[in-house]
Design a binder for these strands. Structure first.
Lengths: 154, 154
DNA sequence: AACGGACAAAAATAACTGTTTTTGTCCGTT
DNA sequence: AACGGACAAAAACAGTTATTTTTGTCCGTT
């Protein structure tokens, strides 16, 4: 119990969220205020504010609340050291996807699938083709050629 | 007509795509070889190779061919100066989304919607709250307060 | 001021359908 | 070696419905 936290009204003004949303999110565990007054009224911490702000921005970007929920649970699975994804992680999003930027890599919040940078690789590869290969003989790119069968008919 | 391009077999080895795919993509206009031999056989240019490689990588990342098609048409709409999105743009993708990195910004290939970086903004905002605001009075964050009505009941 | 409850509208999702797209495979031709 | 055609399996998609989630609104309580 402490009285230093942010009240419901303040949070509404700060985040632009409605009382209904705060209430529902509290009840369903999306963002639960850290403290309460003696009367049982919510007091949001600064970290709570950040989480709410992030949620708001994701919503503005078209992400549904359900998707945010699922992302949070999946992220705390992928990154056990992360307790509060909404406040701790670098997120990027549009309607369909939440991307997590983490240690130079990017992966999707829901599936955990890592994103590829096709073009970045391509630039390196392009150089090698240009320099080293004549159109006639080149197997630099080969994904997994079993034993160099010539001209397989697929 | 020239004979310096890459033959179908070579392209298959280089890109890991099947003959069927090359054939179908040629027929449907996804990637059409730049040249032909006198006999009417395909000769892929280096740029074609890059496009094929990129397509392959997108597919590996779970993007469907249909989505690639739609992304290409939408991108040539957004960026009229870009004739061959697959070879010219920086793309990042997972199954659901293709992101285009373009001039410091990121936007989705299909919708053109720009991605937001909630946390980047948050860091700046966090500083201002921490520094300037006591929990009691703070409307720095206010989205669009009409005329400062106190405590609106929503 | 803030809470909670109850009812309804809106939004998002899941589950299903039929259709289209994409690929594999086989075959004959150049 | 490469092409094209034809048939079928697999994958992706669009469109629909029913269900669940989320929000708005009103009301009474502390």
């Amino acid at each position: 119990m402490n009285d230093t936290g942010y009240s419901c009204q303040q949070v509404m003004r700060i985040t632009g969220l409605t009382r209904r949303q705060l209430s529902y999110w509290r009840k369903t565990g999306l963002v639960v205020p850290q403290d309460n007054t003696r009367g049982g009224h919510a007091r949001y911490s600064f970290a709570d504010l950040l989480a709410l702000k992030t949620a708001r921005k994701l919503i503005d970007a078209g992400v549904s609340v359900q998707r945010i929920r699922r992302s949070i649970t999946s992220l705390t699975g992928f990154l056990p050291s992360c307790n509060a994804p909404l406040t701790e992680l670098s997120l990027v999003a549009t309607g369909d996807v939440i991307l997590v930027l983490h240690r130079e890599a990017a992966f999707e919040a829901l599936s955990g699938q890592e994103w590829i940078y096709p073009v970045a690789e391509l630039e390196r590869e392009a150089a090698s083709i240009r320099g080293e290969m004549a159109p006639e003989q080149n197997d630099l790119f080969e994904q997994s050629l079993p034993a160099r069968q010539e001209a397989v008919q697929q």
